[in-house]
Design a protein around this nucleic acid. Structure first.
Length: 790
DNA sequence: GCCTTGAAGTTACCG
DNA sequence: ACCGGTAACTTCAAGGCG
C-alpha cells in the first residue's frame, strides 16, 4: 500500500539486532502514524593512504572486530577530487565508533570519514527525506504490538520519497506548558522544592492547571503525565523548557518515583543533541531558542517577547516577581493570582508558538534537522546540516570536524560618516553581497589553488589584496549550494506573487524564503568559523577582500556621477537622493560590477555623529530608524534610552534642539524628584563567563555575586539587572545592586543616572548642535558644591 | 600618596 | 560553537608630580 505522511520526528532503535529507523508523522487525514524501515545499515568511509593495495585493505578491514557486514571500494569525491575509498557497513550503529577506532589504527589508513553522523540522520540524508515535509512511502501495516500512541504502524518496503509540490502544514496538535516551582530559598532546586503548578493550553483551546497538594507534587506530576498521554500532542512547546522545565520535571519525577512516560513509545523525555530534550514521536520545541534571534527584544523574558510579538500585553497580565512565587503559594488568599499568572504564561507561550512554529517548520525543512533539534542547534550547525545534505547529492565526502587554532583575517570596510543632518538620502545596498561574491568568484575550499600550485592566469580568479586563487571551473561546492539556495528563494518569492497574501500557503512560502535567506546569509560566516567542517580561512578572507574592492569601486562610480556619499558599511552606501543620477549609478554598477544593487530605503532626514555604525533617520512614512545608538542597546537604562529616542524624534521631526534641551531638563528634574519609576533605572548586562574568569570587577559581575548570595542560581548567558545605588562610594561596581533587591528609591544614586546615563545619551545627539552638559544640568551650583567636597 | 592617562577588559551593536 | 569592525563604558596599573 501507499501512504502519504508529513514527517514530525525520527528516531531509531535496535530490535532483534536489526537497527530500525522510525519515522513519526501525520497523514493528510490526520492519522498519527509511524513508518519503520529495517533495511538500512550504518556505514562510514575509509580513505586509504596513497599507493595502498585496496584489495588487501578490504580484506584486512573485513577481519576487524566488531566484524563489518560489508567492505567495498566506492568512488567518491573529496574537496572536488575523485577519490577511491572504502565503504564499511556495520551491523548496528553502536559498531560504528568501535570499528572506526580499529580501522584508524591500521597502517594503510589515512583517514576515517562520516563516522560521526547519527544513524537516523544518515538515513534521512541518503534518502533525501526532510522533516516537516510530505513524503510518500510504499509500506505494509504491522500490528501495534507495543501499544504505541499512533493510529497505525507500517513497515516500509522502500524508503519514503519526498513530495516537493505538497507544501501545506497538517493540523498539528500543539500543547504549550509552563511550570511554577516552590522557591522559598531563591532559585528552586528539584531535590528540595516541589513543582506547585503546571499549566497547559492546547490547539483545541483547552486550558488546564495542575495544582500540587500543599508541598506534595506527586499527584500533580502523575496527572500531568496522564493528561499529555490523553491529549497526545504532536508538538509540545515551552519557554526555556530545555534549560529549566524538562530537567526540573525529570529530576523531580525521579526523586518522587513518578513515571514520566510521555513519548509515543512510552519512554520518558531524554536529553539529546544540542542540549534539547527528545520525546519520541512528538516534537518538543523550546520557543526560547527562536526568541533569541529577535534582536529588538533586549531582555528576552516570556513577557517581553509576548508583548513584542503582539501576543499578550503586559498590562493584561498578572505580574509576580519570580522570587516571590512561594509567597503566593503559601498565602491562600493570593493563590488565585498565582494561578492567573501561570495561565498568563502558558497563554503567552501558546501565542508565541503560533507566531514562531511556522518559521520553525520551514527552518527544519530547509536545514534538514528534525523539528525538535533545529531550534536548539546553533547557526553554524544549521548551515552545516544543509551542506551535508548537498554533499551527499554531489557524491562529496563530508570532512571531519577538526580542532584548529583561531586565525584572524580582515573583514569589511566602514566609511567615516559625514556628521550632521542630511535631507533626502538614499541607501543603496548590494543584496546578499557575500553569497553573491562567493558564487561569482567560485570561492570554495575545493576550488582553492594553494600558492605553490602551477596554474594558468586565465583559469583562476585572484582575490585582490590577499592574492588567493580560485579555479573558474568546475563549479565549487559553495557556488553550487549558494546558487541553489538563492535561486530557490527567488522562485518562492515569484510564486508568492500569485498567492493570496492571507492564505496559509502564502505564510508557508514566506517562512520558507526567510529560512533560505537566513541560511544563505550565514554561509560566509560559517566558512570562516574554525569549528566548521568546510572551514577554509582563505575562502572567508577572499570573500571580504572582494567585498572591500567592490564597495570601493562603488564609491568611485558614485563620486564620478556626482553623487554625494554620506556613509557606507560593508555592502551599502548612503548617497544624496538624486533620482536621475541614481538611475545612472545603478546602470553603471550592473555593467561594471555585475552584482545586484538596489535602493534599500530613502531617508527624509538622517543624522550622523562622527562615529561609525551609529545613526538615526526619518523615513517617508514618519517612522524613525535608530541604528547602533544607546536607544537600541540593551545595556543602557530604559530612562536614558527613552530620553535619547525622544530627542531623536524632536530633532528629526521638529528640528528643534531647544525643545530637546527643555525636554531633557524636565526629565532630569523628575529624576531628581524621584518621579521616575525604578524599573526605568535598571541596567542589564549579560554574564558571559564564569566568575573566576573575570579579570576586572565589573558592575554586573558584582551584582551577580550578590544575587548568588541571596540564593539565586545563575548561569553563563543570564542577564543581570542592576541599579546604581549611593553605596560606599569609590568604584561604580561596588554601588551596583541587583534590581530585585532594591525597593527603595532613596538608595538610588540619582546623580549617576543624571551624569552617566541621561546626559551622555542626550549629548550623543545634542552636542552636535552645540549643547553642553551645563545646559542640561541646570542646578550647576549644587553639582559643583558636591564636587568640591568629594 | 594623589592625580592623570592610556591600555586592557567588557559588552553589545552593525552588516 | 557563524565572521570582522566598531563604539563606549569601567577598571586598573603605570607614570608624573611633589
Amino acid at each position: 500500500m501507499k501512504l502519504t505522511f508529513w514527517l514530525l520526528d525520527v528516531n531509531y532503535e535496535v530490535v532483534r539486532e536489526v537497527p530500525e529507523v522510525r519515522m513519526w508523522g501525520l497523514t493528510p487525514e490526520g492519522k498519527r502514524v509511524v513508518i519503520i524501515d529495517r533495511s538500512f545499515k550504518p556505514y562510514f568511509y575509509v580513505v586509504p593512504k596513497e599507493g595502498t593495495d585496496i584489495g588487501k585493505l578490504i580484506v584486512e578491514v573485513g577481519k576487524l572486530v566488531p566484524k563489518p557486514l560489508r567492505v567495498e571500494a566506492v568512488e567518491k569525491k573529496y574537496f572536488g577530487e575523485p577519490l577511491k575509498v572504502l565503504r564499511v557497513t556495520c551491523k548496528i550503529p553502536a559498531h560504528v565508533p568501535k570499528l572506526r577506532e580499529e580501522v584508524a589504527k591500521l597502517k594503510y589508513v589515512k583517514d576515517v570519514l562520516e563516522a560521526d553522523i547519527r544513524f537516523y540522520m544518515r538515513y534521512l540524508i541518503d534518502n533525501q527525506i526532510y522533516p516537516c515535509a510530505w513524503h510518500e512511502v510504499t509500506c505494509e501495516p504491522l500490528t501495534n504490538r507495543n501499544k504505541w500512541k499512533v493510529d497505525g504502524v507500517f513497515l516500509a518496503s522502500s524508503p519514503p520519497k519526498l513530495i516537493e509540490s505538497k507544501n501545506d502544514i497538517p493540523e498539528l496538535k500543539v500543547m504549550a506548558f509552563d511550570i511554577e516551582c516552590y522557591n522559598p530559598k531563591g532559585t528552586p532546586k528539584p531535590a528540595r522544592d516541589p513543582v506547585i503548578l503546571i499549566a497547559t493550553l492546547n490547539s483545541e483551546g483547552e486550558e488546564k492547571v495542575f495544582i500540587a497538594e500543599g508541598r506534595n507534587d506527586r499527584k500533580l506530576l502523575r496527572n500531568f503525565v496522564e493528561y499529555i498521554n490523553a491529549y497526545d500532542p504532536d508538538v509540545i512547546v515551552g519557554y526555556n523548557s530545555n534549560s529549566f522545565d524538562w530537567p526540573y520535571l525529570i529530576e523531580r519525577a525521579k526523586k518522587l518515583g513518578v513515571d514520566l512516560s510521555i513519548s509515543r513509545t512510552g519512554s520518558p523525555p531524554a536529553q539529546s543533541v544540542y542540549g534539547h530534550y527528545s520525546i519520541v514521536g512528538r516534537a518538543n520545541v523550546d520557543l526560547y531558542d527562536f526568541a533569541e534571534d529577535i534582536a529588538e527584544v533586549k531582555v528576552k523574558t516570556l513577557e517581553n517577547v509576548a508583548e513584542y510579538l503582539g501576543v499578550k500585553r503586559k498590562e493584561e497580565r498578572v505580574t509576580i516577581r519570580g522570587s516571590e512565587i512561594y509567597k503566593y503559594w503559601d498565602d491562600p488568599s493570593k493563590r488565585e493570582e498565582l494561578i492567573r499568572y501561570v495561565l498568563d504564561d502558558v497563554e503567552s507561550t501558546f501565542g508565541l508558538a503560533e507566531k514562531i512554529l511556522p518559521f520553525a517548520y520551514q527552518l527544519a525543512r530547509v536545514v534538514g534537522l528534525p523539528l525538535d533539534q533545529v531550534g536548539a542547534a546553533s547557526v553554524g550547525f544549521r548551515v552545516e546540516w544543509r551542506l551535508m545534505r548537498e554533499a551527499y547529492i554531489y557524491n562529496e565526502l563530508v570532512p571531519n570536524r577538526v580542532e584548529r587554532p583561531y586565525s584572524p583575517y580582515r573583514g569589511a570596510i566602514v566609511l567615516e560618516p559625514e556628521p550632521g543632518i542630511h535631507e533626502n538620502v538614499a541607501v543603496m545596498d548590494f543584496s546578499s553581497m557575500y553569497p553573491n561574491i562567493m558564487i561569482k568568484m567560485n570561492i570554495s575550499p575545493d576550488t582553492y589553488v594553494p600558492p605553490g600550485e602551477e596554474v594558468e592566469d586565465g583559469e583562476v580568479y585572484v582575490a585582490p589584496e590577499v592574492g588567493h586563487k580560485f579555479r573558474k571551473k568546475p563549479d565549487g561546492f559553495y557556488r553550487k549550494v549558494l546558487s541553489k539556495l538563492l535561486k530557490l528563494r527567488q522562485e518562492i518569492r515569484m510564486a508568492m506573487k500569485n498567492v493570496d497574501p492571507r492564505s496559509p500557503e502564502y505564510r508557508v512560502l514566506n517562512e520558507r524564503q526567510k529560512a533560505l535567506k537566513v541560511i544563505a546569509n550565514a554561509t560566509y560566516g560559517y566558512c570562516g568559523w574554525v569549528g566548521a567542517r568546510w572551514y577554509k580561512r582563505e575562502v572567508a578572507e577572499a570573500t571580504t577582500a572582494w567585498g572591500r574592492k567592490i564597495i570601493k569601486e562603488t564609491i568611485n562610480i558614485a563620486r564620478s556621477l556626482g553623487l554625494k556619499i554620506i556613509y557606507g558599511d560593508t555592502d551599502s552606501i548612503f548617497v544624496k537622493h538624486e533620482p536621475e543620477k541614481i538611475r545612472e549609478f545603478c546602470k553603471t554598477i550592473s555593467d561594471k560590477i555585475d552584482l545586484p544593487i538596489k535602493p534599500d530605503k530613502i531617508y527624509v532626514r538622517v543624522f550622523f555623529t562622527e562615529a561609525k555604525k551609529r545613526y538615526c533617520g526619518l523615513l517617508p512614512d514618519g517612522r524613525i530608524d535608530v541604528v547602533g545608538l544607546e536607544a537600541v542597546r540593551g545595556d543602557w537604562s530604559e530612562l536614558a534610552k527613552e530620553v535619547q529616542e525622544e530627542i531623536i524624534k524632536i530633532i528629526l521631526k521638529e528640528r528643534s534642539p531647544e525643545k530637546a534641551v527643555d525636554y531633557v531638563r524636565k526629565v532630569i528634574k523628575e529624576l531628581r524628584e524621584g518621579k521616575i519609576p525604578l524599573e526605568k533605572l535598571v541596567i542589564w548586562k549579560t554574564l558571559t563567563k564564569d566568575f573566576e574568569e573575570y579579570e576586572v570587577k565589573a558592575a554586573h559581575v558584582i551584582a551577580a555575586r550578590k544575587l548568588i548570595k541571596a540564593g539565586y542560581q545563575l548561569e553563563i548567558g543570564d542577564k543581570i539587572g542592576f541599579i546604581i545605588t549611593k553605596g560606599p562610594g569609590g568604584k561604580l561596581a561596588d554601588k551596583a545592586e541587583p534590581y530585585i533587591l532594591v525597593n527603595d528609591y532613596s538608595k538610588v544614586d540619582v546623580e549617576y543616572y543624571v551624569e552617566k546615563q541621561v546626559v551622555p545619551a542626550a549629548l550623543r545627539i545634542l552636542s552636535y548642535f552645540g549643547v553642553r552638559e551645563g545646559q542640561l544640568i541646570s542646578e550647576g551650583k549644587q553639582t559643583s558644591l558636591t564636587d568640591f567636597f568629594r
